[in-house]
Write a protein that binds this DNA or RNA. Sequence first.
RNA 1: GCCCUGGUGGCGGAAUCGGUAGACGCGUCGGACUUAAAAUCCGGUUGGAGUUAAAUCCAGUGCCAGUUCAAGUCUGGCCCAGGGCACCA
Length: 827
Amino acid sequence: MKDAYFPQEIEKKWQKIWEEKGVFKTPDDSEKPKYYALSMFPYPSGKLHMGHVRNYTITDVIARFKKMNGYNVLHPMGWDSFGLPAENAAMKHGANPETWTDENIAYMTKQLKMLGLSYDWDREVTTCKPDYYKWTQWLFLQLYKKGLAYKKEAAVNWCEECGTVLANEQVIDGKCWRCDHVVEKKYLSQWFLKITDYAEVLLEDLDKLTGWGDNVKIMQENWIGKSQGAIFRFKVVENDLEVPVYTTRPDTVHGITYLVVAPEYKDIEKLTTPENKEAVELYRANARKMTEIERLSTDRVKTGVPLGTHCINPFTGEKFPLWTADYALAEYGTGAVMAVPAHDTRDFDFAKKYNLPLKVVIQNPENPSDCKEEAYTEPGVLVNSNEFNGMKNEEAKKAITQKSVDEGFGEFKTQYRLRDWLVSRQRYWGAPIPVVYCEKCGIQPVPEDQLPVMLPKDVDFSVVGKSPITTSKTFVNTTCPCCGGPAKRETDTMDTFVCSSWYYLRYSDAKNDKLPFAKDKVNKWLPVDQYVGGIEHAILHLLYSRFFTKALRDLGLLDFDEPFKNLLTQGMVLKDGSKMSKSKGNTVDPDEIFENYGADTARLFILSDSPPARDFDWSDAGVEGCYKFLNRVWRLISSDAENINFNYPKFAAGELKKKDNDNLLRLVHIAIKGITNDISNDFQFNTVISKYRELVNAIYDWRGKKSDLDDEDRNVLSFAIITLIKLMSPVAVHLTEEAWHELGGEGSVHEQEWPMWDDNLAKASSITLVVQINGKVKDKIEADEALSEDELKALALSSAKVKELTAGKNIVKTIVVPKKLVNIVVK
RNA sequence: GCCCUGGUGGCGGAAUCGGUAGACGCGUCGGACUUAAAAUCCGGUUGGAGUUAAAUCCAGUGCCAGUUCAAGUCUGGCCCAGGGCACCA
């Protein structure tokens, strides 16, 4: 074994050997239990960033640990390779999105291999390749046939910068998730997936996800936004229309003093009197012009105009006016709101501004309020509510809704905030939506045997204001699969999140050309046992994938209902306290780290300083420190290489004669136990690494006190070093393989069994008894762990220190914690 | 406004059950080796008091209370930081 550590040399060498020998291939047929470890696959943007390095290293260590523990591990990688950056790059540089994407994939693949990740590359999936998007299209057609994909005209989010519509989930604070451009509303006919059909089960099944963090589950719960209430229908006085409203406060129905409809409300023109028409039209035109950000701002002063018409409250017979105001949202509930200013802060503000009346119907009996200063929104008892007076408002909700049901003007209603998923995009670089439009036959799905609908190559990327795909001469015009007449292809492509909603299923059967995946294979490998990725997908990708899994189960394509059993959302990689980004100029290029220190140092460092779920602060000194540590490990092994053999006996407790040898043996067992537990318990790799360091320090200490080694010494040392190599092998993958090989180990260290500890040895030979007086530590005594409670007590009381401090005082009580501590309470 | 997460030395962070606060590392200070430097090795490093040096004592896990023999850990109230949601009726 060489004296010095040359990571660049050994890393390349082993990467090549592993690839040639197929060390990381995953057989489908194995007696071993399966384990599926998955990182969120990357968008091939050009180069890996440190966030990728962190994500993939975490998953890789998990995969290797599970493999050593006897699992048949599936650990695949692929590319989320459709999407706008490729198209934008093509427009800018006159290149082709496909070329740009292929080059990036090639470069990033090289980087992934340099990191020493244990992927089975035979299962690689690339969403922009026809052999993948064929199946994305096929799945779309299955959803279409089930009525889960449909086209409709709706107010949709439009990003002018990206030249396309966006899903609700992709609008962050009224801005585009990708380019930060302000999103506008447009009325367009678009394709949607009916995720709302699954709103209830998506919510309910969150309870099954015990391996997910509460933060992600709560975010999904909020996004789905279930609320329970009632629909009431109000008759219009001036004509025979009805206005239905949704409310979560049916208990306040007697307090209605006006009613608000959204400016986009469908019947608004019929509800407007001729005298009010001009003002209403003006108000609606202004509302249209406003951006979503302005419109949804809660600190904006509320505005509105009266329509001139009125409704009757069927509970009271009272007549109240109709208004339009943009604080009512067209897309939620019925688009109309019953206003109870006494008990709703928003209605209160509005009523105050326009001098609308206010009627108190809920009161706190202890502290009644007239609601003149502010709305009373707390629980209370009903007043001014006819037969419901005196009822607690929670009970009244049910009773009042029941009355509306009995009398035929209302019903119980559960409402969700979740909207259907808008999946069509007016862009080129995506999976074409496989439908055609025929003048005679209407919308026609492309027959399955004609899939994939290939992306055309004859497109002009320099066009502005429309999707490049529309410039293709070969693509748009086609024939109708139904009547054979002329027809036009759908030119919209699918949101990339559709492609990424099923990729984890494809890994189970990546080369299948008959189906997206065989049912037996997908059922065998899924669900994913451990999914690792960024928190930014808490709603987007993770919600869509859950929906896809449930929909595909209902289509009979698979037999499970949740795709990801355990989820680890790793923290961000920061430098100087803020997220690494090109614009801030605080990025660190992984290539430079590989070149200067090697992949093992990068892997060790990215796991060392913070637990995986927390943000990680990059420091150059930290990298340096990890590099030094690996050198130290190398020296430890290489300097004693001739003293290490693989034939050491298995030691039992008390067998070793020399105290220091017994001590080292115990420290190794303590390390095995600690490291195994730290990995098993939420993957606390930072403490795993500190335990590597402790063990290395302990071996150095032991070695420093020895000059000549006898057989017992050599055996203990061999056990310690070989165990260290195994324990470190999931992290320092190349160094440990080289050492394993150089010491004469058989096969690959990565195919060894994970070491086991002996409970009798995984502890110190004696205990340190802590002696407290009144809860404060006063003395520590080395003691035999076999001592009884009484003996421990006697030992503590015999301490000179204790005698001194308790002299002349009254011992009230003595608490003994076995093997640990004695607390003497004195007065 | 609502919801979540976090707050421990100069810094990153440790601390199964309530039981030695500060593991491990970074930084820093001192020492060894060296003609010198680098590398390496050894040692100190929460604050304050104390001492030639030590022993030793006191305080200390965002703040204020509480429970307990014992609280970083449990309970109640508050403050701060980060994140999510938000005219969703």
